[in-house]
Design a protein around this nucleic acid. Structure first.
Length: 572
RNA sequence: GCGCCUGUAGUGAAGGGGUUAUCACAAGAGGUUUCCAACCUCUUGUCCCGGGUUCGAAUCCCGGCGGGCGCACCA
């Protein structure tokens, strides 16, 4: 990094001012867990609010909220229990730990599919050496699950559960409710923000890799045969894209989203749309768009559920960091849950433009005959009759049961019907496009991109140039001195400002006015109202703009009006 | 998980087997001050935790926890 020590100073400031701090510090701290302090929590809340507002701006998108504790079968169906159970092999000499399947990647076609003992024998048979020390002494492979295990119920019959590794599954569980809510018409979407948990082996880099983290995800359900039409023309800025390095577009490009889609780099129109929406959001919350790039996953690194995946990476003190993933998860999750749960509610209905007429032959079983005749096998017979595709022309006919026995279906057992039916549409499993945001990583980059160290009268001076929408306070109210009634007037103004919905004021009365401006600048408060002697005489105050320290005098009433209308800049 | 480095007020640092651990900035109280970290007085607050060596450990050793970097991991 060009500016030595900048990251240290930023991290120190965040701790000193109560933005982001290590958790449980008086007990020694826990790696991978952080606190948002009295200033940071406001920033986080506002970033999340901006995010919700941004994505619910899409028609037919609603917020939902589901539990973090998730029963095991849900995560078995989603693939997380299997996927998270990677086996790890430990070197007996140097203690290095490696994924067992990676050790075999050159010598076995499907190392993923092996169990622990198979992995061990394959490793031994192939003479795999430890990548760090070259030893061939391996301890047995053992599963490593990155999810936090817990159980539901305190006593003996407790059910196995996990803390969710993503919010997405909760939204898939809500699919039937969403389908009803949106009057059974796709596309629609659900957004959810909340905590996710991954028991990382070694969390590092401050708040970049956390064990408990804040995420924000949208599941946008579409009919794969008629994805929503999007006009990408309204996002005309050029962005840096890094297409699949193994694909035909390999190599960094700087083009617009429309061009990227038209040329086939971005394969799906909805994915292209969400890439553009993502950039727009990041810009709104104060990310420097010059430090944004989108990288397409190579097919080999794709998550188990994704068919096309783009990462949005942000540049900062930690280099390029993945902060958003946009994945076309196709119908993978809904199909998996349908199969594991047996639910038939995880589908959409596609109406044909013109209804189809079909002649349908059916054999309706007559239970009063089949029952007594086949007894315990009657259920199977009934089911098989319903499944017959080619109805035999003549009765009686032979039917083979599962156990191989052949039975004869006679005329007295069924009613043969030929009817003309009108088919108006068909069921299908929707596809889902998912933008998933790592909120903590985005907050880190907002802080990073807006942390400005300038020189003021020969000394270093810090300004956090946050957008007002994500600033910890909208405005600071500062009496020039806390005497002669200036303090009282400031307190009144602060409480009036706080009574405006969505606007918060911080009151600071201690020490010199210059010092208080500096404190506000450091945590990114965009505006400061100062109450001075003139204020006591004529009810006017001054308002100071953080970014250039310009100050104008206005009537308090007018200022409050501008504050509630978000029109303070017009005063300058 | 492994290796190397590392841990002293809120932050940044100095020091260090022996009386009461030092400095700057920050913070609190009071004073002063008619707008950008001013000044004066006073105040609060620190050796990560545990064990060992020692007459004596914040200092040396071991372990744990935390942090940094490298390797590995990051669905």
């Amino acid at each position: 990094m060009a500016n030595e020590g900048r990251m240290t100073r930023l991290a120190s400031m965040l701790r000193r001012r109560g933005v982001i701090l290590p958790s449980f510090e008086i007990y020694g701290g826990v790696s991978g867990l952080v606190d948002y302090g009295p200033v940071g929590a406001s920033i986080k809340r506002r970033v999340i609010d901006c995010w919700i507002e941004h994505w619910t701006g899409i028609p037919n998108v609603r917020e939902v909220d589901s539990p973090t504790i998730t029963p095991e079968p849900v995560l078995v169906a989603s693939g997380h229990v299997g996927e998270f159970n990677d086996h790890m092999s430990e070197c007996g000499d140097c203690g290095g730990v490696f994924r067992s399947d990676h050790l075999l990647s050159g010598s076995h076609d499907f190392p993923d599919s092996l169990d622990a003992s198979q992995l061990d024998s394959e490793i031994e048979n192939n003479g795999v050496c430890c990548p760090s020390c070259g030893s061939k002494e391996w301890k047995g492979a053992s599963p490593m699950n990155l999810m936090f295990r817990t159980s539901i119920g305190a006593m003996g019959k407790a059910r196995q559960a996990y803390m969710r590794p993503e919010t997405a599954q909760g939204m898939f569980m809500l699919y039937p409710a969403l389908f009803r809510h949106f009057r059974q018409k796709l596309p629609f979407g659900a957004v959810q923000t909340g905590r996710g948990y991954r028991n990382e082996i070694s969390p590092r880099q401050g708040m970049i890799r956390l064990r408990e983290f804040n995420m924000a995800e949208m599941e946008y359900f579409i009919d794969p045969e008629s994805p929503p039409e999007v006009d990408l023309g309204s996002w005309d800025s050029r962005v840096v894209l890094i297409p699949d390095p193994e694909g035909s577009f390999a190599g960094e490009k700087k083009i617009s989203f429309a061009e990227a889609f038209d040329s086939g780099i971005v394969r799906h129109p909805t994915v292209a749309w969400f890439l553009a929406m993502t950039l727009e959001f990041l810009e709104k919350v104060g990310i420097d768009t010059g430090k944004v790039r989108f990288r397409q996953h190579a097919s080999t690194e794709m998550a188990h559920y994704a068919s096309d995946c783009w990462d949005c990476e942000l540049a900062g003190e930690h280099g390029w960091v993945e902060c958003v993933g946009i994945a076309n998860r196709t119908c993978h999750d809904l199909i998996a849950h349908q199969e594991h749960s047996g639910s038939s509610q995880l589908r959409g209905w596609r109406e044909y433009e013109t209804p189809r007429q079909e002649i349908r032959d059916t054999l309706a079983p007559i239970g009063s005959v089949i029952g007594p005749k086949f007894k315990e096998r009657a259920n199977e017979v009934t089911k098989l009759l319903g499944d017959i595709v080619e109805i035999p022309d003549e009765l009686p006919f032979k039917l083979e049961l599962e156990d191989g026995s052949i039975i004869e279906i006679g005329e007295d057992m069924v009613t043969r019907r030929t009817e003309e039916v009108t088919i108006r549409g068909e069921y299908f499993t929707p596809h889902v496009i998912e933008p998933a945001f790592g909120i903590d990583r985005i907050i880190w980059h907002i802080l990073d991109h807006n942390f400005n160290e300038i020189e003021k009268e020969g000394e270093m001076y810090t300004i956090l140039s946050l957008e007002q929408s994500v600033a910890p306070f909208d405005v600071a109210v500062l009496p020039l001195f806390d005497k002669d009634g200036m303090g009282e007037m400031a307190r009144e103004i602060a409480s009036e400002v706080n009574s405006i919905m969505g606007i918060t004021a911080d009151l600071d009365t201690s020490r010199s006015i210059g010092r208080r401006y500096a404190r506000c600048d450091e945590i990114g408060v965009p505006w400061a109202i100062t109450v001075d002697h003139t204020s006591l005489e004529d009810g006017s105050v001054t308002i100071r703009r953080r970014d250039d320290q310009a100050q104008v005098r206005v009537d308090v009433g007018a200022l409050l009006t501008h504050l509630s209308a978000g029109a303070v800049p017009e005063l300058f």
